[in-house]
Design a binder for these strands. Structure first.
Lengths: 212, 212
DNA sequence: TAGATTGTTAATCGATTAACAATC
DNA sequence: TAGATTGTTAATCGATTAACAATC
């Protein structure tokens, strides 16, 4: 079974590789070299090659690696076998913008349901999705077996909605509010705001005159 | 000069520490232990202590570290001495949502100007900011010496606007569109979309039944 | 064949961890 | 004093890098 257990670092890098490869495939490319991947991901090319070899993926010397093969392998490792269904909570400005993110579809994620608590928009359609009453959230999650939610509600309802999501069985929350939220340890919260990236780039901005 | 050069890893960790500490201070806390920091950032507590010692920051045994002292130290290292001014490009759904991100203010970032190319909204106010004509962007950046931009335009104008930002002297672009954009190597692009985080969590979702 | 990139080795560096004496 | 956490050591692990023979 050890063969099927990957370290955090490897999974992290595979996510980065996969992201780049799907974009490349989209551009019509068929093969990719370890140095192409290295340039895009800032991961050393020797490490890329070692990762691939460790995963049992072979390339062609002088040519590179087959993009379709890599994508299939990576998806299999991540357990990304079919499209993954998501719910989106919050149909305000942020929610509407997220509904327009075509990248979700491209990477095999489908926003299946949209919820809000605002009676003025419940029942209306946004980007062809009907906005549902947040009071029906728990029932729908139970029926549909969805485990991943995108949180795009207002700051002051962020924690309440999080509690509801946890109670309903959601296991991954992509937090698009810019407030910290809390959940039990078995729920994975990924906060998506620009602060850490902004802080991080400041150092390079002020110390070199360049951003990196 | 070696004393003032920090590795990429250290800067990354300092950004994480700082983010947590500002939130803690906001809650009224005065001191923090290395294990508090460790729990929140998932960085080993011994490594936290070693980082702080290396930076010349001393704690009190049995008590912990002074939060204000840490924040000051970290800000100084990152070169975050005064509020940092930003521009926001794009005043659609996404831009409006970002204007409401109070976390920017809390961490010392001010959205100074908002630009759009839509004549219907140019001149109008959103969250007390007047929307300016994107044609005036280059002049205003030149005068104001702003070096950081948040990109929240539509997918099909993302690259054009990026080119304009680069030409105007912007050095850091926080890319909130979900399309990849290209810029010369001296410009730092930070793409902020949920794909890598989603891919990453899939592995834990399917391999353990839990997200981590 | 010539050019390019893989597959692999070996050396180094930084991150991670456990443990515990020092001391607030 | 008793309890807690720092400051520090030492051992280990994974990441990083350079280099180059193998081979497509």
């Amino acid at each position: 079974m050890k063969n099927f257990v990957f370290s955090e670092g490897v999974i992290q890098r595979i996510s980065q590789y996969l992201r780049f490869l799907v974009e490349l495939k989209d551009l019509g490319k068929r093969t990719v070299t370890s140095s192409d991947i290295s340039e895009n991901t800032r991961i050393n090319s020797a490490e890329v090659r070692r990762d691939l070899i460790n995963l049992g993926i072979k390339g062609k010397r002088g040519v590179g690696f087959n993009i379709d093969g890599l994508i299939n392998n990576f998806n299999q490792i991540l357990g990304h076998d079919a499209n993954v269904k998501l719910i989106l909570v919050g149909a305000g400005n942020l929610g509407k913008a997220i509904l327009n993110y075509q990248i979700l579809k491209k990477f095999g994620f489908d926003i299946e349901y949209v919820f809000d608590n605002n009676e003025k928009i419940i029942g209306k359609k946004i980007s062809e999705k009907e906005v549902m009453d947040i009071n029906s959230l728990q029932d729908i999650i139970n029926e549909s077996n969805i485990r991943v939610a995108i949180l795009a509600v207002s700051q002051n309802s962020a924690q309440n909605v999080t509690d509801l999501l946890v109670k309903s069985g959601i296991k991954v929350i992509i937090n698009y509010t810019s407030v910290p939220i809390e959940a039990p340890p078995h729920v994975n919260i990924q906060t998506n705001d620009p602060i850490e990236k902004l802080l991080h780039t400041l150092y390079y901005l002020s110390n070199t005159g360049q951003a990196f």
